[in-house]
Design a protein around this nucleic acid. Sequence first.
DNA 1: GTGAAAGCGCTAACAG
DNA 2: CTGTTAGCGCTTTCAC
Lengths: 329, 329
Amino acid sequence: MEDVAKLAGVTKMTVSRALHQPSKVAEATRERIEWAIGQTGFVANLNAGSLSSQKTRIIAALVPTFQHAVFAETIQGISDVIRPRGFHLLVADTQHSQREEHDLVQAFLARRPEALVLTGIRHSAATRNVLMRARIPIVETWETTGQPIDMAVGISNFDAAVAMVRSLHAAGYRRIGFVNGRLANNERVQLRAKGYEAALAELDMGPPVEVVIEQEPVRIEHGERALAELLAIEPGIDAVFCANDIFAAGVLIESRRRSISVPDRLGIAGFHDLDIARLTTPQLTTVKVPAYDIGRLSAQMVVDRLDGKPAAGPTIELDFSILRRGSTR
Amino acid sequence: MEDVAKLAGVTKMTVSRALHQPSKVAEATRERIEWAIGQTGFVANLNAGSLSSQKTRIIAALVPTFQHAVFAETIQGISDVIRPRGFHLLVADTQHSQREEHDLVQAFLARRPEALVLTGIRHSAATRNVLMRARIPIVETWETTGQPIDMAVGISNFDAAVAMVRSLHAAGYRRIGFVNGRLANNERVQLRAKGYEAALAELDMGPPVEVVIEQEPVRIEHGERALAELLAIEPGIDAVFCANDIFAAGVLIESRRRSISVPDRLGIAGFHDLDIARLTTPQLTTVKVPAYDIGRLSAQMVVDRLDGKPAAGPTIELDFSILRRGSTR
DNA sequence: GTGAAAGCGCTAACAG
DNA sequence: CTGTTAGCGCTTTCAC
């Protein structure tokens, strides 16, 4: 910057102003500075600026994995809001591990981001501890059940599962099985299981019939196997609710293989409304979660807070919707 | 850090060493320092460290969009390699815009990342210019045709398209249509189109029959419409090759609607091998691109270079594969 | 409208 | 094994 300043016949300070508050620099001076920047190929060092101004213009986000379309949507939502405001996005995946999450939170805080967006509302005590001390806006996303550290944006996975079971019941299904993904450190799927169980009890539909698929990443084949396991446990099931569309697609494939007619003899429901949900035959009944909006609103809360605007609330609970399609009556 | 140092009865320098080169600090001293860190809740400021050491431990990556599963895979590959080495990932999406790309490159360079990973090998002259001066490792991904600025990891989209057309020809298809996505600033799909055209010429299969879908994001419905357009142009087509699986799925749906039997009267092929490719009935013939490996190897090249290790080569061309499935003979 | 001085929080380099 | 000195490249604050 010194070089640019000399070339333009001013001091660093004026160059800095020309860059950040151009209106406070005389037209002619600014032009000389711009010319000098072009000559030298100068690219300001934001780190130095951050150190001095105590503003990093960085927002950090943690997702369980990049490979799941719904989290990619959430990242897109965050990015779309913060980009126009000059924030940069630092991201990492926790791989559903609380230990990774803790290490990452710690490591990210060392970069002094101006805000942090996390996935889920359950974190290790140590993580919560570090987070509370951080004194920056923190948004927990995707799940709203529980005490947020600061702010939260999401849906109630519990309610969503209850709603789906009720919907299946209303369609006449009476013995509903449930296929879930790995529960460890994933409160979203844990809550879906609880919702399923609660709804069964409420509607007096007998004991839960559940299969948990531990393998990651989630694959269609696991859904195929899940139906076999479910039928082994309870041959009388007439519907299967899956914690994600991939499993549901697998259940559908296995049903076809076994010549079980869908949706008549077996109803199938998924979760997320991924692309594949509309691609199967019949199309999948599923729960649509506003993943993009979760990201968008999280970022919005953050930037509003940083702008000193009044908060939209500590927690924003978004609507999910039950999409009834051909895989259920 | 001063506080921690005082509390532990040492200087900042010793605290800094305890953090980065623990072996160079006496056991007892280190323990006192760790205790002091716990007491104060001290979190080092990496920006200050970066400024001083001239090492940011940041790697920046640009993708066209977060919403396409293949780029999410690539990000995952990058992340998996750099995380264990203590690098953080700064990301953004260019939205397929060269102007956005240029602005982002400029903005990211201001953060002094130690390396940059870009998608595609075509960039505006201005962008290339800035990049050449940056003096950091730069990897261009996904496409290898052309002069890389520094390093490149990808496949030849041209060759992949040629291979698919040859495969269709070998299966007996003789009049092959092509459905492409928006061409602007997307050299990957441009090259697929060129590959398609070249292969038609090579195999003497008549003039190209092409439809370009301009809308973004890519949707199944666009594929449905594409088949209608294709048939309007050339009713005689007996196969459709799509630049992505989503379109191919749409073509399949539309074929069913029109009672065109697949794969007999119409062969359908896609690109990417997304989850949906195995979910349709029949399953989709497609080109599998090693998206995860593209990310993994890009990051590997970067960290090797930063470690001063010999480069695996300026360009790594990975293998794609043609997956022949039920949607073609 | 522009400049001078001081300092952000850390680490390089050297000394002991 | 530990400390001292200097300075990374900016911005803040206060002058003028």
